[in-house]
Amino acid sequence: MPNGLITRRAALAGTAAASVALATRRGWAAAPATVNIGFFTETKPTMIAKGEGWFEAGAGGKLNWTEMGSGADINTAITAGSCDIGLATGSAATAAGIAQGLPFKLIGMVDNIGPAEEMTVRTAANIKTPADFRGKKVATPFGSTSHFRLLGFLKTNGLTQRDVTVLDMKAAAIVAAWSRGEIDAAYVWAPAKSKILADGGAVFPTYEALDKAGYVIADLVVVRDGFAKQYPEAVTGFLKAYGRALTMYQQKPDDSAVLVAKQAGVTPAVALADMKEYDFVSLKDQASDAWLGGTAANPGKLAHVLKGTADFLVEQKSIKSAPAVDAFQKAIDTGYLTKALA
């Protein structure tokens, strides 16, 4: 496919070269004036680095935070050039973006989602086995990692979307519909998940079996190609700031929860409980081939996960086609992680 972004890239590179030239002439460091961050308000250590200004110090420029509706929104914004770093974007959206050749690199991860996104069933709906989902209404935000897991759950249990009514709803709408008793189950994340669990819901465990079947989901950090080329130091500094927040969370979880709670607008107890569900992988482990690491000839685990996700999305007709696994490894750049660890 002819790459129409060439002209755009050329233009960007031109601008970049010009501003670097200008910067050196005036004796400035090549740090960005503003960095556009696409993010979600969540109960995660990212909120420590945001609230304490570590991300800003690490990137070396003013951060312009934009709350996004979904990982798909981050893909669109990066493609349009209006988002430089996507923080905690879901692996489903990232897999789709790589398959479509969008201009970004995957540089790190925020967490391995694990049980933090999980099926919640209404106790009154009497759902005990996968077969009990027949004829039931299950809601999830489409295009999300939860949606991907839910479809994986149906597929691995021989259920189709004719057997189960799958509804596309935003997290807030799920809580509203749940309170009226209109949906029997939902696949979603906190805080919606905690709210429906407290309102007559029970966990229906699916994640361990799905993780084993290859339906691993993770929250990732992506950076726009043009930005990474121009400001590699800023990208490294940003990851380093997250590493600092991770260390703080591991050493002082209670103090961390207070800081996270302030940013997310919840109580420290809720923040701590939410965070315990996630597997916050250290930067060092992220760089190994258990996650991002690997080579095009010998791709790591995450590249395989993304390839599997993209193939599934092709099956769902969400995207047209998916490249081979090495293309996914090539879209991963562990260079910034390595520098942040040094």
């Binding site: 798909a72 493609t79 959206a93 969008l102 809601a139 596309d168 995207i319």
Partner: peptide, 19 residues
């Protein structure tokens, strides 16, 4: 609102993955 059918929903859903 809780879509899974309709042209409006289809446009929205397809737009998520830039179809």
């Amino acid at each position: 609102i809780a879509g899974s059918n309709g042209i409006g929903w289809m446009i929205l859903d397809a737009g998520r993955f830039l179809r």
